[in-house]
Computed example of a mutant assay.
Amino acid sequence: MKISIYVPLSLCLANGVLTSPLEPPRPGPQLLTLVFHSADGQYTMRMPADGREHLTKNGMAVNYIDAPDFTAQKQCTFRTSGKVALVNGINSRGLQQILLGPPQPVVGVTCSGTCVPTWVACVNPRTGVELGECCSGYCDKGRCQPWLSPVAAPA
């Protein structure tokens, strides 16, 4: 009778050990938002920074791209319909932008990597090692700060 109890118990324990991960699961790719602006309007893409090209499926001639939550100017590649110059900027509200010259359709976007959100630690306090680039600001005193202070930002 004791053997019949131990066999199911052993199987349950073995099954639990075999199905539990040896290390914590890794989160998926970081999600980012890009807002494409043209003289005719705008459109938004929400996509993973998974290293794959994501097609815009929009033919508007883009003047500039807002990148509010990712270092798109460093971690993304923009495929356009012709030759283009991309210039990085920050608007008066502290929003990261990528200016396109001349304006033209963006066919696809490829982004990869991760960045650290605003107000989160950008340096490990124990080791002093940088944890990553700030998504929408700069690293100061060990934390990601916004490009513009919320107090100093115009209303």
Rank of each mutant, 00 (worst) to 15 (best):
M45D: 09
G41Y: 10
D69V: 06
K2Q: 06
V109P: 01
F78V: 00
R93Y: 15
A153Y: 01
P154Y: 07
I5E: 12
P154A: 06
P125A: 09
Y64M: 09
T56M: 07
L9C: 07
T127C: 11
H54S: 03
L131K: 14
V120S: 12
I98L: 09
A85Q: 09
D40Y: 00
R26D: 10
L18C: 06
V62S: 05
L95N: 12
Q30D: 05
N58K: 00
L34V: 01
A39R: 12
D140L: 12
K74N: 08
P150M: 04
V116M: 08
K83R: 13
F36N: 01
A49T: 09
D40P: 00
D69N: 15
C12Q: 10
N88Y: 06
L55M: 14
R126T: 07
G82Q: 12
G82D: 14
C111N: 02
L34H: 01
A61H: 06
Q73E: 14
E133I: 01
V17S: 03
D140Q: 14
V123G: 05
Y64I: 00
F36E: 02
L18A: 12
Q97P: 05
G28H: 12
Q104W: 10
C144P: 03
Y6L: 15
C144T: 02
V151T: 01
N91V: 00
I3M: 13
P48N: 11
N91R: 04
A14I: 15
V35F: 00
P154W: 08
P150D: 10
A72E: 04
R93E: 04
S81M: 13
S38R: 10
T56Y: 09
L13E: 03
E53T: 05
E23V: 14
P150F: 05
L34K: 02
P24Y: 13
A152N: 04
C135T: 04
I5N: 05
P102F: 13
T80C: 01
P117V: 12
P117M: 12
K2M: 13
C76A: 04
T77W: 09
G101W: 09
L55A: 15
S92C: 02
S112D: 07
D40C: 00
C111W: 02
N91Q: 07
K2S: 08
P125G: 04
N91W: 06
Q104S: 07
G16A: 11
Q96K: 13
V35K: 03
A39C: 06
V87M: 11
P146V: 06
T44Y: 05
N58M: 01
S81C: 06
T71W: 08
S136P: 10
V116W: 01
L31M: 11
R143S: 10
V35H: 03
N88L: 00
V87L: 11
G128A: 08
R26C: 05
G59I: 08
K141V: 06
G128S: 05
S112A: 11
Q96S: 14
